[in-house]
Design a binder for these strands. Structure first.
Length: 234
DNA sequence: AACGTTAACAACCGCCTGAGA
DNA sequence: GTCTCAGGCGGTTGTTAACGT
């Protein structure tokens, strides 16, 4: 019984553990005072020595994402948007790498920004897809009707819809080729310091304005282009 | 005014990596 | 060589404010 009680006591202490949840202004003050005095690093000892009941990880995160001097507050600017889009096209979800090119912005901030806007795009593109398939469906039915009517007057080896489909395929092929060529032409890089850190300067005119204002065509080029780049086979 | 939805932000979790014992 | 641990990173979740109906 005693042993059980003692065991529960230990359990309670373990369960209590580090404090979680939002940081209080007092905790922020303690942490920033300590880091300003002793510098960054050794986060687990920072937590202990600063008198914070927080894990080292939590302290580091709070400092890096919120307390560190020089952090920008407020909305991501259109210029920053452009950089994020370009670098994401290049590196994917390497948020910390992307954040290095945006002084005052944290990887967390960029990640949140991307997720918020990507979600928005995902939803709208789903709607667009539905609309497109409906249009294609209508067009197909119309073509079939037209073909039937034409068949009553002429005997053709190929139906009108088949011809149209062929034309459509040719159009697609040439369009794909054009896109590929454009990608090659537009994909210019400016070397920034170290040799592995090349910055693409594509999409400049598209991202110079906020993407909320982009026309559907611009959106298509922008997003289609990005996902093509993400595709290792393209 | 009340309610539901969405966007933005803050924080935690789990995994990976590198350094030191 | 391997084990442990701290730190870093990306993914995910929770909370809150703003907005629309």
């Amino acid at each position: 019984m005693v042993a059980m009680t003692m065991g529960l006591g230990v359990l309670n202490i373990q369960e209590q553990g580090w404090k979680k949840g939002p940081w209080t202004p007092e905790e922020d003050k303690l942490l920033s005072e300590y880091v300003n005095l002793h510098g960054e690093g050794r986060w687990s000892s920072v937590a202990r020595c600063a008198g914070l009941n927080r894990s080292g990880k939590s302290c580091r995160l709070r400092w890096v994402n919120y307390l560190r001097p020089g952090l920008k507050r407020g909305q991501i600017t259109p210029q920053e948007e452009g950089i994020i889009i370009e670098l994401h096209a290049l590196w994917g979800n390497k948020w910390s790498t992307i954040a290095r090119y945006l002084p005052g912005r944290t990887d967390n901030e960029i990640k949140n920004f991307w997720r918020t806007h990507f979600k928005k795009k995902e939803k709208s593109s789903l709607k667009q897809q539905k609309r497109r398939s409906q249009i294609l469906k209508d067009k197909f039915q119309k073509d079939q009707l037209q073909a039937q009517q034409e068949n009553t007057h002429h005997t053709k080896t190929t139906t009108a819809s088949e011809e149209k489909l062929n034309i459509h395929d040719h159009h697609h092929q040439s369009q794909d080729q054009t896109t590929t060529t454009h990608e090659h032409h537009d994909m210019a890089f400016s070397v920034n310091g170290s040799d592995h850190q090349c910055l693409p300067v594509m999409y400049q005119d598209l991202v110079s304005c906020s993407w909320y204002d982009a026309t559907p065509d611009q959106e298509y080029v922008l997003w289609g282009g990005l996902w093509n780049l993400d595709d290792p086979h393209s």
